[in-house]
Amino acid sequence: MVPAAQNSDSHQADGPLSSNPLIRKLSNFVPLSVSDRQILDDLAQPEEQFAIDVDIAAEGAVPRSVFLLKEGIAMRYRDLPDGGRQIMTFLIPGDLCDMHVFLLKEMDHSIGTITPVRVAPISRESIMGLFGTHPRISAALWWSSLQEEAMLRERIVSLGRRDARGRVAYLLCELLWRHAAVGLTFGDVFKLPLTQTELGDTLGLTPVHVNRVLKGFREQGLISISQKMLSLLNVDRLQSIAGFNSSYLHLGGASAEIVRYFNALEGRSAKP
């Protein structure tokens, strides 16, 4: 069983999981104070909506802000000269569409929607203002960026060394763990409105090959798919097929030493 999002620490606010997916995600790394949560809720208030199959940010465009995905699924991708497409990663609620994108003169990839989405645009000034004044949020955002880099490294390993069954199993397991980390699973079941073409464009496989692998997994009792809900019926077996180790997602939280460091920082700042 994949663990649900963490929500227990003396420093965290009590009560149910936050409705803000960014808070749910960052809380996997470090416990957030009531003040931290209010700051993140304020950042998520402005909202924009995008329809299915449109670009939130296009390759070559000047980035105007960081986007927090609040609802739906999006993707980072590159169009290729031969008409093909490579999807680098899927974005789910709680993900930031490139936290440091405002440092670029232009986008070097596109961010497109797979489903209708709701996003919160966050300005450069708001992001920069967090650093130095809110150490827990700053560290959690760094952790989020490091997790994204780790996911891309794992994608390279998958494309270079896993066979088709391993690639598909790896991606399904990763998506399960990521959805669980933000409270979007029901046991080992989560919403997966992805087409076989989109899976193929991510894993370097044809839609026919993806279909063959998924059919085999269903016949072996490893997965079931109904009304865009994916059930992983044997997570251990799928992780074995993929050689999957979730440690690269760094969901274990900050070390006790780091938490003590934050507590000490906040204690000093609270003194008159």
Rank of each mutant, 00 (worst) to 15 (best):
M1S: 13
M1P: 15
A5R: 13
A5T: 13
S8M: 13
I23C: 03
R24Q: 12
F29W: 12
D36I: 07
D36C: 04
D36G: 07
D42I: 05
Q45W: 05
V54R: 14
A61E: 14
V62F: 08
R64C: 05
R64V: 06
F67G: 04
F67C: 07
L69V: 14
G72T: 01
G72F: 07
L80V: 00
P81E: 02
D82C: 01
G84P: 01
P93Q: 07
V101D: 02
F102R: 14
L103T: 15
E106M: 02
H109A: 10
S110E: 04
I111N: 10
T115E: 02
T115H: 01
V117F: 04
V117T: 08
V119I: 14
A120G: 06
E125K: 08
T133G: 07
A139T: 13
W143A: 10
S145P: 06
Q147F: 04
A150C: 09
R153Q: 15
R153E: 14
R153F: 13
V157C: 12
R162C: 14
R165G: 04
V168K: 01
A169D: 01
A169F: 00
L175C: 01
L176G: 00
R178Y: 01
H179Q: 09
H179M: 09
V182M: 10
T195V: 06
Q196T: 05
L205H: 00
N211W: 07
E219P: 12
Q220V: 03
M229F: 08
N234M: 06
R237E: 13
I241H: 00
N245Q: 12
S246M: 02
V259L: 14
E266T: 10
R268Y: 11
